[in-house]
């Protein structure tokens, strides 16, 4: 199980990375934390690909509050997400999600940009982005654009990212006073991909609920959100979840169980936001 890689270049800065990406004409992939990409290289599942290593690109680092937007550089490691005061204060859902991602050694290397670009449907961060209504900032030779998270995740491991584009940052609406956020998941073992997970954001203008691990992408549960917004009970919100998510059977659980667990999580998350001030941890 030895990796096959068709070449490697360390990008000096963002413009270098983007020019390399353009020059590769789709034959290169961006190497950030590498915690999924290198595994797939080792397994020879990644095809013949060259690597553009962006780990030295400092423009992609850093977490900053800009007015009412929390800006998180694409190269921010999961560990930084888990320990950042800024994230804890302004995007607690991410703060709660980060420690659930794999294990310490993975969190030290894995990045938010890499996780979103990979778009694993069972990953926590895509669902955080959707629930938080975050904007994924991507850049390519044609320039920079922002994509709403709900438009970014298209299908299984498929995003709106162009072949010559890379994620540079994430912009998250900062948690407002009184807003409550909760991330929960049900994983068989600590650090495993969850059988089901939820990110619930209760804002003044309405609830946003995203699930992960229950379909080909992280998904916004619009029907359930509507029930919550008209102040339906947790049970009522859970009852309509079959309109929002259609899990598939797999080796870890039948679809019906994932739907059931999503319902349990929705009830628990709603009760948690009702019971206590969980937005700010």
């Amino acid at each position: 199980m030895k990796a096959a890689a068709a070449g490697y270049v360390r990008a000096n800065d963002l413009s270098h990375a983007i020019s390399l990406l353009a020059a590769s004409e789709g034959q290169a992939r961006v190497l950030a934390g590498g915690q999924s990409l290198i595994a797939s290289l080792n397994l020879r599942l990644a095809g013949e690909t060259a690597l553009i290593d962006i780990n030295g690109v400092t423009e992609l680092c850093g977490i900053a509050l800009d007015g009412d937007v929390l800006r998180i550089g694409a190269l921010t490691r999961h560990r930084e997400l888990a320990t950042s005061d800024l994230v804890a204060r302004h995007a607690p859902a991410i703060s709660q999600a980060a420690p659930l991602i794999a294990h310490a050694a993975i969190r030290n290397r894995g990045t938010i940009g890499g996780s979103l670009a990979y778009a694993d449907p069972a990953a926590e961060l895509p669902a955080c982005m959707i629930a938080l209504d975050a904007t994924i900032v991507v850049q390519g030779p044609a320039g920079r654009r922002g994509v709403r998270a709900t438009d970014f995740f298209i299908d299984l491991f498929t995003t709106d990212l162009g072949e010559d584009e890379m994620i540079v940052a994430i912009e998250v609406p900062a948690c407002a006073p009184g807003e409550r956020q909760v991330t929960m998941e049900l994983a068989r073992r600590s650090g495993d991909y969850a059988l089901a997970g939820i990110v619930l954001v209760r804002r003044e203008n309405g609830a946003r609920v995203a699930f992960f691990g229950v379909g080909p992408t992280a998904v916004l549960a619009r029907a359930a959100m509507a029930v919550i917004d008209r102040e339906g009970s947790p049970d009522e919100a859970a009852a309509v979840l079959d309109q929002d998510i259609q899990p598939l059977d797999d080796v870890h659980a039948p679809a019906s169980v994932r739907l059931h667990l999503a319902r349990v999580l929705l009830r628990r998350a709603l009760n948690a936001t009702l019971a206590a001030e969980v937005g700010h941890v």
Binding site: M1, A3, A5, Y8, L31, G34, Q35, I38, A39, N42, L43, L51, R79, H103, A104, A105, I106, N108, R109
Partner: peptide, 24 residues
């Protein structure tokens, strides 16, 4: 395992623990 799960290759790079098999 060479796919980042078992942890047998865990070591330290730049002061942090990492998976050796997921680092080139």
């Amino acid at each position: 395992c060479e796919h980042g799960v078992c942890g047998a290759c865990t070591l330290q790079v730049n002061g942090e623990v990492v998976r050796g098999c997921l680092t080139l």
